[in-house]
Design a protein around this nucleic acid. Structure first.
Length: 85
DNA sequence: GCGCTGACTGTCA
DNA sequence: ATGACAGCCAGCG
């Protein structure tokens, strides 16, 4: 059975290139609309290189964070993929 | 098992 | 529009 963490990872892994999802959207897709913080926590502590977590942003259009270089790098990645920030 | 932390979100002032 | 407050969840010590 998939724990919330597994679900979140799967959802993020499904995000297509040039597309971005908010933490809230991921939380909903994972099955918990209120678990946006948990999603962020999962990314923050358990970052997976196979998962484009840099495509996960805040609901206000903010980048949130990136444990791989910072928000600036995250923004560069998103813009480089064609995402509008 | 309890308490704190954190890349969040939404509402009020 | 900006700032502050409260609410929610999962992971870790």
């Amino acid at each position: 059975m998939e724990s919330f963490t597994e679900k979140v990872r799967a959802v993020v892994a499904v995000i297509p290139k040039g597309q971005v999802m908010t933490y809230k959207a991921v939380a909903i897709a994972a099955g918990n609309p209120k678990a946006a913080r948990a999603v962020a926590n999962i990314m923050a502590k358990n970052y997976d290189q196979h998962i484009p977590c840099h495509r996960v942003i805040r609901s206000d259009g903010g980048l949130g964070g990136y444990n791989r270089g910072g928000e600036n790098v995250k923004k560069q990645l998103l813009t480089g993929e064609g995402a509008v920030v």
